[in-house]
Design a protein around this nucleic acid. Structure first.
Lengths: 167, 167
DNA sequence: CAGGTGAGTTCAATAAAGCAACCCTCAAGA
DNA sequence: TCTTGAGGGTTGCTTTATTGAACTCACCTG
């Protein structure tokens, strides 16, 4: 299939997808977060084929999103845990879950409810502004070129347009 | 290959990924949001092959995330625009972008800065609690079974555990 | 020592991604 | 009239990823 890599794109969404955008990968992160740390548990829970799980976990470990810890020596046995970057990915997955709850509703209602321990309330994740704390929508956010902006794969036409001052 | 569908999973992340989890799809949504509405513009900007773009746009239209609008009759020409569910996906993509900015930093710095028009400030998207407004982390959120919870592909082991009261 | 467990690896079959070339409709120019 | 060009795809072929099932290997338990 020869999937195109997004690694060369000057786009942080592309960079993120390069690491966690593959089929199964977000669900693997979810499972580890929910307490599944053993290879066989994850494989059975998801129904993913075992060789693919090997590859995906290997990539996640290489990218520093998941840590592989030995929990016994003989025979060598390992557990998978989220590293800090993996833990910070969890809220993004919760936001994606909230989108799915709203726009791809399952019959019977949402399968999971989230409770915020800090305030003790059942809640819906929302993406908010770090400055004013208000929820952000696609309409009230403007994207400006940052220090790393460049024309290249993934931003060819956009770079041309912003050079002209269009959009 | 017959990629396993997540449609039968009792998991809203699976449902979301079924719609926007394929390779390229989030970047297509990003491009449309950023003002690229024509087939050729998106194809050139991303460097995606044209037949794949046809398939992905078709799936997005079928799922109601993107709308296909005729902007002239003879010859028939169309533009692609985000529908409401597509627009609500944009903040999730911004959260993913923020994760990439932090954990998959490009040399030269972030390619895009975001400005919240409502408060006029450059900001970082954060996932927050709808009840108390505080940012959520993986540590202070508990997942409970919801009305649609069930054992099945994607939640086999988890359902067993929560039945025993484990985790 | 038979059977089980954890964590993979190997292999064949098949479906998707990629690339390039082609097609169709219409408009405008020479 | 003939050609060129844009927009929006389709067709065909090759390469690669995914699947599913079987197999391995090292150890533990009864």
């Amino acid at each position: 299939m020869q999937r195109t890599s997004f690694a060369e794109m000057h786009c942080s969404i592309g960079q993120s997808l390069e690491r966690v955008g593959e089929w199964w990968t977000p669900l693997i992160v979810r499972d580890i977060h929910l307490g599944l740390h053993r290879f066989d548990d994850i494989a059975e829970n998801l129904g993913i084929s075992r060789n693919l799980l090997t590859r995906r976990l290997g990539a996640l470990v290489t990218d520093g999103i998941v840590e592989r810890r030995a929990y016994q020596e003989r025979p060598p046995r390992h557990e998978y845990h989220l590293s800090e970057s993996g833990r910070e990915l969890v809220p993004v997955l919760m936001a994606l879950m909230a989108w799915g709850d709203k726009w791809a509703t399952l019959e019977g209602g949402p399968p999971v409810r989230l409770v915020h321990q800090t305030c003790g309330t059942e809640f819906t994740p929302r993406v908010c502004c770090s400055a004013c704390g208000e929820p952000v929508t696609s309409a009230d956010v403007t994207a400006l070129p940052g220090p790393g902006a460049a024309s290249g794969p993934g931003t060819r036409v956009l770079a041309r347009r912003s050079a002209i001052g269009d959009h």
